[in-house]
């Protein structure tokens, strides 16, 4: 080995060592230990007791009809996560694709729309949650309830309804319906990001394809479904997986709006995990929930890779 190569090697090793050590001790090793703790019963103080798959069996048992109140917590959390995954994913993909194709067709003031739509993304989830908690409030200043109230009086004034159509105030942030109420909040926050993502992909599609389609008399709708969508398909799939994974991990919004307490009806997997560990001292069960989250992330990622186009497009 030449002295230069040896020198190169020493430098390369020195450059990666700090990152390697930190990553190993703070990420990789704890991740492995997380899997082990999921197989134990542990209160966080005494030594963990190995119990095999009992924590996971307990989760599955929650789905049976005669499951007790505490066992039912897990299925409810799963239901809430499904609402938070599917609702926003469908709405955001549709809206973001519409907005992105609008931007591509050169609207006036496109940069203003871009900058404004993206802004909510970079706010802290805590601030956004509190903003929406105030918008949803049942006190006089709650904007949504005020709007419903005005709609009521408008309808009665026009003679379209004999009595108030909506029963105000609606408790939007009630635990039972919180997951549903969070959908508009997530759509409001995230649409701008996905719009930019899709817009960037659309701008890479060569204009000549559209020119050819126009010559052949294809309508804009037809162009969208036969040119744009197929060509940005991989980006759309990526966006969908981002949204599903985000819905799986929701913690901040529920925790903040529920005043930092775990409520049986509004739990997500992440808040259930938190309360199992820190309120009920069931660290083993908490770790098992985390493993479920990890496996779901892994599954989504693998499915995505299969959904990608098989061969690279040449254009």
């Amino acid at each position: 080995m030449s002295p230069h190569r040896a020198h190169q090697r020493r430098f390369a090793l020195a450059a990666v060592t700090p990152a390697f050590l930190l990553f190993t001790f703070w990420v990789a090793w704890p991740a492995v230990k997380g899997f082990y703790f999921a197989l134990t019963r542990w209160d966080g103080l005494s030594d963990p007791v190995y119990i095999g798959l009992e924590n996971f069996q307990q989760m599955v048992a929650g789905f049976s009809a005669e499951a007790g109140k505490s066992a039912k917590l897990f299925p409810v959390a799963i239901r809430n996560n499904l609402i938070l995954m599917i609702g926003p994913a469908v709405l955001i993909l549709a809206l973001a694709l519409c907005f992105a194709s609008a931007m591509r067709s050169r609207v006036r003031g496109a940069s203003i729309f871009r900058v404004a739509f993206f802004f909510p993304n970079i706010l802290s989830a805590v601030a956004v949650s509190i903003l929406w908690m105030l918008l949803y409030s049942t006190s006089g200043f709650g904007v949504f309830n005020a709007l419903l109230g005005w709609l009521n009086s408008g309808l009665t004034a026009l003679g379209l309804a004999a009595e108030p159509t909506f029963k105000v105030p609606v408790a939007f942030t009630d635990s039972k319906i919180l997951a549903w109420s969070l959908i508009p909040m997530i759509v409001w926050t995230a649409t701008g990001f996905y719009m930019l993502l899709f817009l960037a992909a659309m701008q890479a599609v060569p204009e000549t394809l559209y020119d050819a389609a126009r010559v052949d008399g294809a309508s804009p709708t037809l162009q969208f479904f036969h040119i744009t969508l197929p060509l940005i398909w991989d980006t759309v799939v990526t966006g969908m997986v981002f949204l599903l994974i985000a819905g799986l991990k929701v913690f901040d919004a529920v925790w903040v709006i529920e005043q930092q307490q775990s409520r049986p009806d509004s739990n997500t997997l992440a808040t259930l995990m938190y309360s199992k560990i820190f309120n009920e001292y069931q660290a083993g069960y908490g770790a098992a929930i985390a493993v479920v989250i990890f496996l779901a992330v892994l599954l989504f990622t693998l499915v995505t890779l299969r959904l990608y186009r098989k061969e690279a497009l040449e254009y």
Partner: peptide, 10 residues
């Protein structure tokens, strides 16, 4: 790929 939740307990 590792969700932060998995690291929390350890």
């Amino acid at each position: 790929m590792v969700p932060v939740q998995l690291l929390l307990v350890p």
